[in-house]
Structure formats: C-alpha cells, structure tokens
Nucleic acid binder design. Structure first.
Length: 270
DNA sequence: ATGGTAGTTTCACTA
C-alpha cells in the first residue's frame, strides 16, 4: 500500500496536480492538508474520477481542512479536536487494518514567543496534546500511521541552515523538543528518515517568496509520515517528491510517500 | 534588516 501526504494549499485549485500525483506516482491513499473548502463543496466527483472512490473530508471555510482519498475501502473514525478547537486539523480512517491519521499542525505565526504570539502558544499547546495523544495511541497497540503537515522540521538537516533557523518558527528548540517528545511517546518511526540518512539534507517545503526556489534551495522538511513500530518492518520505500515543487501552479509543499508491504497475516491468506 | 508570493475570508487574514 502506497500512502501519500500533501499540503495542497487549496484542493480545488490543485486538482490538476492531485491528478498528476495519482497518474505518475499511483498512491493508494492520499492524505491532504489545507484543503480550504467546506465539506459540501469538496470536489468529490473529480477525485472519484481519478480512482479514489472512498473519501473522508473535514473542512471549513477558507482555512485549514483535511481529507483522505483512497482507492481502498475505508472506515471513518472520529476526528479529534486538538486544543478544544473544531478547526479541521485532524481526520482519521481505518484502511487495511491500519489506523491512518491525517494531521495539520498549526504553523504558529512569525514571532517565536508564546507570550507575544497567540498562534505560537496554540502551536506549543497542540504539540503537548499530540504527545499525550500519541502515548494513548501507543497503549492501544494498533497499527497506526500519523501523517501530515507537522509544521516542524525536527532535524538539523531538515532545514537549509540550522543556525539561521534556530529563531525561526518551525525549527526553534522548543518546537523541536516538543515534536520529538510526541514522536517518542508514540514510538513512531519516521518513514522517510528510515531510508534517507539523517546526515542528508532533505526538504518538503519551499517558500513562495523565493525568486528561484530550486536555486536558493532554502527549504524545510515540515511534512512527515510516522508509523507505529509494528509497521516499521513493512516499510519498503519512502521519499519526498521534490520535483512536484516545480510543477505548474505548485503548492509550497510537496508530497511525501511511503510504501507498506503486505502484512504477514495477509501473506498467510494468500 | 527587510521584503518577498500565494490563497481565500479580500482593501485583511493565513501561511
């Protein structure tokens, strides 16, 4: 099963690119963030025509919004409200026996001080709640994938300049500490770093504001696929689709994909 | 130190 996650920055505007991702990379499941559309206006028909006939959506007007598109049947699960807000940052489904969580963690604004910036305070609170929630999920002991735009670049090699981004929201020590704590509490395995050595620079987001995103290459790895320890042995491949940043009318984020082999149970049935 | 772009809720907000 191939899983993709992508902050599309408006699903309606990016439909041709979702089609291209489907055509060229053939994910079985696509988790989207920043769909920016209410559920009634979600372009279901267009997505279904791409072969994704099982769709779960949770959107609001203008901001945020998450969705899961699948070629395989899915069972909807309850969406969680982080920080007591119903702001459409989480949606979950069960697919092939795996609990798949699609997450859009708050960006956190510009000022990296929770006393001066409410958005940053919200992000830190969200990350604390993520750690508690991860711990609870681990105790359930089910196969889990947590994917999405986490808006934090945890490793020094997840940003173009560790030194220069220490005071930039997305790579401040407190955010890195909290996202790392959440990862540890869940026991989650970072699927992409499972294959790409941590010493290697790797990004999934490049600002729209750069004159030439590829030439300056001032990126950050904000988008992640985490899997529970039981699923880690089933990982056969994971990658960031950097080239998608160069597609026509791109999102500022690119898709991240991971392949999961069949489970031993499935093999026995076959 | 500043400002740069993109998207939607637009002469303002989020990222």
């Amino acid at each position: 099963m191939r899983i993709a996650t992508w902050n599309v920055n408006s699903v309606r505007l990016r439909l041709p690119l979702v089609a291209r991702l489907a055509r060229e990379f053939g994910p079985d499941v696509i988790c989207l963030q920043e769909t920016k559309v209410v559920d009634d206006s979600f372009p279901r028909k267009d997505i279904e025509s791409l072969g994704y006939r099982h769709i779960a959506v949770r959107g609001m007007k203008g901001y945020n919004g998450v969705a899961i598109l699948s070629r395989l049947p899915l069972e909807p699960m309850d969406g969680k409200q982080f920080c007591g807000r119903d702001d459409c940052r989480h949606i979950a489904v069960r697919i092939e026996g795996i609990d798949l969580h699609c997450l859009y963690i708050p960006a956190g604004g510009d000022v990296p001080d929770p006393t001066e910036n409410d958005k940053f305070a919200h992000k830190l609170e969200f990350l604390d709640e993520l750690a508690l929630w991860s711990q609870a999920l681990r105790r359930q002991g089910r196969p889990v994938a947590v994917v999405g735009d986490f808006n934090v670049a945890p490793l020094e090699t997840d940003v173009w300049s560790h030194r220069q981004l220490l005071t930039v929201v997305s790579h401040t020590p407190i955010e890195v500490e909290k996202i790392t704590r959440a990862q540890q509490e869940g026991g989650w395995v970072d699927a992409v770093r499972h294959f790409v050595p941590p010493a290697e620079k790797l990004y999934s987001w490049w600002s729209y504001r750069a004159r030439d995103w590829a030439a300056s290459d001032r990126g950050r790895r904000l988008d992640h696929i985490w899997v529970s320890p039981d699923l880690a042995p089933r990982l056969t491949r994971a990658a960031v689709i950097r080239e998608a940043r160069g597609w026509e009318r791109p999102s500022d984020h690119v898709p991240v994909v991971a392949d999961l082999d069949k489970s031993q149970n499935d093999l026995k049935i076959v």
